[in-house]
Simulated scan of single mutants.
Amino acid sequence: MRARSYMSFYEEAHLHDKVLLNFAKLDFNMMQECYKKEVGNTTKWWRKLEFGKKVPYARERIAELYFWPFAMNSEPKYSTFRGVMAKLTQWTTILDDTYDGYGTIEELELFTQAIQRWDASYTESLPECFKVVFNAMMELCDEIIELSAVSGESNLILQSVKEALSHYVKGYIVEAKWCHEGYVPTYDEYKANAASNLGYQLFAITFIALGEFATKETLNWISNNIPLILQASSLVARLTNDLGSHKFERQREHVASAVECCMKQYGFSQEHAYEFIKKDINNCWKDMNEEYLKLVEDIPRPVLDCIVNMARICEFLYENREDKITNCALFNDHIVALLLDPVVV
């Protein structure tokens, strides 16, 4: 989208290079076809697994959620990664809705055990939709392992994925219990849990596995303890999400957001809580920038970039306290510019 703007500005310059401009337009259109194919493959996957029929509460947000893998890295050579990530982001959204709005606490505890123990038998007594979501996860993990086999680190990748999924759903079940009990945690409690339940560790592992960065050193760095740069990125995403969506979430039974937790801990008004959280987001960016500079000699730069970019895409999706994922009309122009309208050559 920004590339389209740059080309438009450049074309208006009196001394622009027409050949260079035409190449830029052709390159944009070729990449757009690539992105459209990736979104189309995700749509086929969605229909094949019949999420719309078997998981009736599932939101189909394939084009909108594609902006995550696109933002993480849009280069042509990472097409395989984006194809898998497009499915993974859709799956995590279904998982989010399963914990937030569908399952009972008893069902969710069983479902959590199924994922943490990697054992489908825990889903046998659950409604069909849980089994569909669990099986989709297993298939995605198989796909990641198969595609990353060339790295020679398949066993370590599988272990890393399992641990990330376990950590991920642990954060969700904590929030589900808070909601079930009507408990409003302190802002500090909320943040301590929030860094785990966005799936960013899982996303980063997927990029490492499919982006040809799957070394023991990099996988251990991302898996053994959540690095500060990833914690900060996850918190930026969670806090900006909460600023944009908490009013909508208050319309249904839902765990308290960062806004309510901040108001409780500090006795703030809603507007004061907004300002406090914005400052917290700025501090997270300072942590990310500092960690990036410390790590850039040891961790591949594209890995660090993808982690930072996950925070950037959330700031875009939830800027001005708006939620472009829930209110898709706010997103239409961006989807059209990226995926539908070619640049006129």
Rank of each mutant, 00 (worst) to 15 (best):
3 A>E: 13
257 S>R: 02
25 K>S: 08
44 K>N: 14
189 E>M: 10
27 D>Y: 05
27 D>V: 00
145 I>E: 14
98 T>R: 10
62 I>S: 03
118 W>P: 06
288 M>W: 04
188 D>L: 06
226 I>S: 06
113 Q>P: 00
87 K>W: 01
286 K>D: 15
248 F>R: 15
235 L>W: 00
104 T>A: 03
224 N>M: 10
111 F>K: 03
22 N>K: 08
62 I>Q: 01
121 S>P: 01
299 I>D: 03
92 T>L: 12
200 Y>D: 11
196 S>I: 07
267 G>T: 01
165 L>E: 15
28 F>H: 12
5 S>A: 14
67 F>S: 06
316 F>D: 07
162 K>D: 12
239 L>F: 03
64 E>Y: 00
291 E>I: 09
115 I>C: 08
205 I>M: 02
299 I>Y: 02
239 L>Q: 04
147 L>H: 12
84 V>T: 10
46 W>P: 08
272 H>D: 09
54 K>Y: 00
106 E>P: 04
272 H>G: 02
194 A>I: 01
283 N>H: 15
117 R>E: 14
161 V>K: 05
328 C>D: 04
164 A>E: 09
253 E>Y: 05
285 W>I: 06
321 R>P: 03
98 T>Y: 06
78 Y>F: 12
44 K>C: 10
210 L>K: 01
16 H>N: 13
311 A>Q: 07
26 L>W: 10
283 N>L: 13
175 E>D: 12
157 I>N: 03
249 E>L: 00
190 Y>M: 09
46 W>Y: 04
271 E>M: 14
8 S>L: 12
320 N>Q: 11
302 P>V: 05
190 Y>F: 13
26 L>I: 05
307 I>P: 00
103 G>R: 07
76 P>V: 04
336 V>Y: 12
94 I>R: 00
100 D>T: 08
311 A>C: 04
334 H>T: 13
272 H>S: 10
304 L>I: 08
214 A>P: 10
219 L>I: 13
41 N>K: 13
26 L>M: 11
158 L>Y: 14
65 L>D: 13
243 L>I: 10
325 I>F: 05
229 I>D: 06
291 E>G: 12
294 K>C: 11
187 Y>Q: 14
68 W>G: 01
312 R>N: 15
57 Y>W: 13
67 F>A: 05
225 N>L: 00
128 E>M: 07
343 V>P: 08
245 S>H: 02
115 I>H: 06
160 S>I: 02
81 F>P: 14
311 A>W: 04
241 N>Q: 08
28 F>G: 05
219 L>F: 04
